[in-house]
C-alpha cells in the first residue's frame, strides 16, 4: 500500500511538472496551429534568467522568478517578431522548421552566453531546506514541492482560462484561431495579438521551468529538450490545442511513466520509450487526443 501511495505521489509530482509545461505548448498551438518546438528552450532561458537575477543581482527568489517570467515573455515576443512574423503567409511547414531552428539557436546561444557547465538552481535560495522538506502520509513521503507544483499548475490554468475567455485580447486570440484574414478585417492588429500569445506562452514556459528546476536543480543549456518533448507528448495525449487536455495529458503521462517503472522494474531503464509509444498509439487511435476537438478537414 505504501509502495502504491508513494508512487502515486511520485506520479503526481512528475505529471504536474509535465502539465505545467504542456499548458503553454498547447495554448500556442490552439491559437496559431504552430507546434512551437522552441518551447522547451524558452523554458531553459527562463530558468537561466531566474538563476542569474538571483545569483548575480542577489534578488530574492520571488522577485527573481518575476523577472524570469517577464524576461521569457519579452523573449517570446522577440522570437515571434524575428523568426515567425516574416513567415505568416508561408506554408505551415516553414514555420515548423523555423521553430526547430529557433530551438537550436537558443541552445547554442545559451552555451555561448551562460557556458556549458551545469549550474545549480539551489544557489537561488538562501534557505535551501524548503526544497528538501517532505511530509509523511501513511509512510509515503511527499515533497512539499508537489503541492506547490499542483497549486501553480491550477493557478496558471485559471489565469490562462481567464485571459483567453474573459478578456478582449483573449477574444481576439480566439478569433485569430478561427480565421486570421477576417479578424484582421475587423480592425484587430493581428501581429500584436500573435506576439502577445507568444509572450504569454513563453511566460508559462518560464514558470514551468522554474518549478522543474526546483525539483531537478541541474541547470544547463540542453535542459529544455526532454521536458519540451514530454510536454509535447502530454499536449498531444490530452488533445493539442485544448488547455484542460494538456493538464490531463501531463498528469496521466507522469503517472504512466512512474507506474510502469515501479511495477515493471525490468523495463525501467527505457521509461522514455514508453512516452513515445503512448504518442504513437494516440496518434494512431485517437489523433485528436483525449479532450481534443475533432478537426473537420475541408477538401
Amino acid at each position: 500500500m505504501t509502495f502504491f501511495l508513494q508512487n502515486f505521489f511520485n506520479g503526481i509530482m512528475l505529471g504536474g511538472l509535465y502539465a505545467l509545461i504542456a499548458v503553454g505548448y498547447s495554448m500556442v498551438y490552439g491559437i496559431l496551429r504552430l507546434i512551437n518546438f522552441a518551447h522547451g528552450d524558452v523554458m531553459m532561458m527562463g530558468v537561466y534568467f531566474a538563476y542569474y537575477s538571483a545569483v548575480v543581482f542577489s534578488l530574492n527568489p520571488i522577485l527573481s522568478f518575476t523577472v524570469a517570467v517577464l524576461g521569457a515573455a519579452a523573449l517570446g515576443f522577440l522570437i515571434d517578431r524575428v523568426a515567425y512574423k516574416p513567415l505568416r503567409k508561408a506554408p505551415r511547414i516553414s514555420a515548423l522548421i523555423t521553430a526547430i531552428g529557433v530551438s537550436f539557436f537558443l541552445e547554442n546561444l545559451a552555451v555561448v552566453i551562460f557556458g556549458a557547465i551545469p549550474k545549480s538552481f539551489l544557489d537561488v535560495f538562501k534557505d535551501k531546506s524548503i526544497l528538501e522538506k517532505t511530509i509523511t502520509v501513511a509512510d509515503a513521503r511527499i515533497p512539499l514541492l508537489t503541492f506547490l507544483v499542483i497549486i501553480v499548475t491550477f493557478a496558471m490554468f485559471s489565469v490562462l482560462f481567464f485571459v483567453v475567455y474573459k478578456t478582449k485580447i483573449g477574444m481576439a486570440m480566439r478569433a485569430i484561431a478561427a480565421d486570421i484574414p477576417t479578424t484582421s478585417l475587423m480592425g484587430v492588429n493581428v501581429d500584436n495579438v500573435i506576439g502577445f500569445t507568444f509572450a504569454l506562452g513563453s511566460a508559462l514556459a518560464a514558470a514551468g521551468g522554474i518549478m522543474w528546476a526546483m525539483r531537478f536543480p541541474n541547470v544547463h543549456p540542453y535542459m529544455g529538450f526532454v521536458p519540451g518533448l514530454k510536454a509535447f507528448i502530454a499536449a498531444v495525449f490530452g488533445g493539442i490545442g485544448s488547455i484542460s487536455g494538456a493538464v490531463l495529458g501531463g498528469i496521466l503521462l507522469g503517472m504512466i511513466e512512474i507506474f510502469l517503472a515501479a511495477y515493471f522494474p525490468s523495463v525501467m531503464g527505457y521509461r522514455d520509450a514508453f512516452a513515445f509509444i503512448i504518442l504513437i498509439t494516440v496518434l494512431l487511435v485517437k489523433p485528436s487526443g483525449l479532450l481534443g476537438k475533432k478537426a473537420i478537414e475541408k477538401v
Binding site: 511520485n10 509530482m13 531537478f216 541541474n218 526532454v226 512512474i258 507506474f259 517503472a261 515501479a262 525501467m268
Partner: peptide
Amino acid sequence: QVFYKSGDQDFSAQLSVALA
C-alpha cells in the same frame, strides 16, 4: 539492480523499488 538512462531527471520510481 535498478536502471536509468543518462539525462533522466526523475528517479522516484526507481528509488521506490530500490528502497523497498
